[in-house]
Design a protein around this nucleic acid. Structure first.
Lengths: 228, 228
DNA sequence: ATAGACAATATTGTCTACATTTTTGTAGTC
DNA sequence: GACTACAAAAATGTAGACAATATTGTCTAT
């Protein structure tokens, strides 16, 4: 599923965005039930639109829909979490390689501008903005790499990463340190392909290392599996 | 969207399947309009279900939905076509590497069984089955590679590849020769990672080479772009 | 007292009717 | 005669109502 480069506009996307933010900021816990009528009332839209939004979020891996039961915030297991980070390293490595092949000098300031926004949000302590901008940096790299398809894949990967981070992070958030982004920009500007790739891989490894993926069985709705 | 490993069941999926087949077999041309009411009448289902199916097909990149205008069979441009094949080579190379790391001897017969089905369909001249099984082989590799995420990506890539093939193929179809699949199984069985990867890349290159991607502007609905 | 069956409630799934938007056809005017 | 403005028709978007299903609570029989 992979969506086009532009973010889908319209009221459906707004619902998705708000639910996504609530999940990323941990106001909605994994496993939380998402009643359609309740959401329709909160967002002041029809149930049909809520169903549409939930369907999109399901394809993004953020919610799980059980037929005749309803929608729940997804609870990615440790296996899925490792899978996501494994694939993400491979994808982002390709993004960096392709980006260095294609980026022009005129585009470098775009990266720096984004970075400064990240630093400002960091100083303000604006959690919501930090989360959005951290992912946005990686998406910007993919966009400049010039492959709509890689962009779509990364969009999906980042959504899932956010949920996984919200679910498994052990300490403070430090979602994506701006410092590592700065170092990445340096090497990209210098067209240092091996160096930039290595920094990206280290960066993603750091994010993963802050998670507690020690086979701790996540809370599940399947009580049989949880209690027996 | 990346869907779970199992194909979505239910009546919606059936609609998707039939539309997809019509596209893959060239009975629906790229750019063809898909009126909701018409589809509802043909499949003898409600319009709501048709809308749902079209929404899924859009996220798979097979149809384009223009707000307040309707749904059309997608018309991937040459740039998008090249992008899909470029990414597909990278993804499938990773799939093969990972598969060789994980596959057990007990799983090899699964590949051979699939191959024999392909050969049977080939002898029967069953176009519909050939198209489905050719893609299915690549999906089977991804499934055995053990990454749900890579599987989902490949599912999307193969859908789009089918549409691109239907749109741009110049000569006979030869969608995915079973012979190259056979050679691939050989090298996978022998755990020859570089060899298998190379065969996969050559295989995909052959498929791409049969297309006519010579900047021939595809028919577009945007007349302004087509005529000015 | 407990286990099983039955009924009540709540939630999702589906369909049909209505509103909005776009397109096409027509008439009027310059 | 051609262009513009308006009106009618068709298709999509939206909302509300109804049906199917699962869960929860209660009652009865053992």
């Amino acid at each position: 599923m992979y969506h086009s480069k532009e973010t889908v506009t319209g009221p459906t996307a707004e619902i998705c965005e708000r639910i996504w933010l609530s999940i990323a900021e941990k106001r909605l816990r994994p496993g939380a039930r998402l009643k359609e009528e309740q959401l329709a009332e909160i967002f002041e839209v029809s149930r049909a639109r809520v169903r549409q939004a939930l369907s999109v979020l399901e394809s993004d891996g953020l919610v799980t829909i059980v037929p005749n039961r309803g929608a729940f915030v997804a609870e990615p297991g440790v296996d899925e979490a490792r899978d996501v980070f494994h694939v993400r390293k491979q994808i982002e490595a390709r993004v960096v390689e392709r980006l260095i092949d294609r980026i022009t000098d005129a585009q470098i300031p775009l990266l720096q501008a984004h970075l400064s926004k990240e630093r400002q949000a960091d100083q303000r302590g604006d959690t919501s903005a930090i989360i959005r901008l951290s992912g946005g940096f990686h998406l910007l790299l993919a966009e400049l790499a010039g492959s709509d398809f890689l962009f779509g894949i990364l969009r999906d990967l980042i959504s899932r990463s956010s949920l996984i981070t919200a679910m498994y992070r052990s300490r403070h958030l430090h979602n994506c340190g701006p410092d590592e982004h700065a170092a990445l920009i340096e090497h990209i500007s210098a067209r240092d392909k091996p160096g930039a790739t290595q920094i990206m891989l280290n960066h993603l490894q750091h994010v993963e290392d802050e998670l507690d993926l020690t086979a701790e069985a996540p809370t599940t709705r399947d009580l049989r599996q949880a209690l027996v």
